[in-house]
């Protein structure tokens, strides 16, 4: 990526501390970042490095202990419910664990209907809604007719995660945070999930913040990479710079842990 768009999401000194005193955990430690419009950004780090915590702060789901987040150049303001709802029209997420992403007491239709309602289509006739849901499902190669009136636990993990992508398809947010969307899925479904995600991002041009513990995968998909260790960004830059000329020892270690990074990519291990 040579000509980057405007920064749509930036952070200065963003910090999250859980607990007090002796039980204090600094999950995210003074990180600075600038995510640009239309970019695919990867945040790479081992488990426990604070990726999910950062994602939740970006999404406004948990408070920021210290520091500021800027949205479209302005300080982000989430002080009221209305402002949060407005913010969430712009930024959406796919979580790591599809099995806990659904309310198990609700039929899956309600997840998709919520999206239509959020886009202002709450009063559309039933046929129109079904048509939209069918389109969204077929985008991820699911048949709405087979899914309607089913409960989440009747679906496989891969199907659930594809449905999450269908949800994003309906919402069309400006920014999508995908927090290790393939790590809890069986190996066979991973490649397809990733394919649909990339297809969606190519069609909509949204900014994708892709969180992963797999630096090879990050290199494969992203324009920019941030390397995270113990809550800090130890290195960042364009994917080529970071992977081909790593400066930080942690980055080198991550790269050396990946077996076949310069050879042909084997998607079955994604």
């Amino acid at each position: 990526m040579v000509n980057k768009g405007n920064p749509c999401l930036s952070g200065r000194g963003v910090t999250k501390i859980f607990g007090f005193g002796r039980h204090k955990t600094i999950a995210v430690d003074h990180v600075d970042f600038d995510f640009h419009e239309g970019e695919i950004v990867s945040i790479v780090g081992e488990s426990g490095s604070g990726k999910t915590t950062l994602a939740k702060m970006l999404l406004g789901l948990i408070s920021v202990t210290e520091g500021e987040i800027y949205f479209q150049g302005k300080k982000r303001d989430l002080s009221s419910g209305r402002k949060k709802q407005e913010y969430w029209r712009n930024i959406q997420a796919i979580f790591q664990d599809p099995f806990s992403s659904y309310n198990i007491f609700h039929k899956i239709d309600s997840v998709l209907l919520d999206c239509i309602r959020m886009r202002g289509g709450g009063n559309l006739p039933r046929e129109k809604k079904v048509e939209m849901m069918t389109e969204a499902c077929s985008f991820v190669n699911l048949k709405f007719a087979e899914l309607t009136n089913k409960y989440p636990f009747e679906l496989s993990g891969g199907q659930m995660q594809r449905l999450m992508i269908a949800r994003i398809f309906l919402l069309k947010p400006k920014i999508l945070v995908a927090d290790e969307p393939t790590s809890m899925i069986d190996a066979c479904s991973r490649a397809t999930i990733l394919d649909y995600l990339m297809k969606l991002r190519n069609e909509t041009g949204m900014t994708l913040i892709f969180i992963t513990h797999d630096i090879g995968l990050a290199y494969y998909v992203s324009d920019t990479i941030y390397i995270m260790e113990h809550g800090r960004f130890v290195e960042s830059g364009s994917a080529d710079d970071v992977i081909l000329y790593p400066k930080h020892p942690y980055t080198r270690r991550l790269i050396s842990d990946v077996p076949k990074i310069y050879e042909e990519w084997d998607l079955s291990t994604v």
């Binding site: 789901l61 969430w88 806990s100 919520d114």
Partner: peptide, 19 residues
């Protein structure tokens, strides 16, 4: 995450608590 997803879908606090 299902609570987070419900928030992201713009549901109000009372609804999230109840549903």
């Amino acid at each position: 995450d299902h609570v987070n997803l419900s928030k992201l879908s713009g549901h109000s606090v009372p609804r999230i608590i109840l549903v």
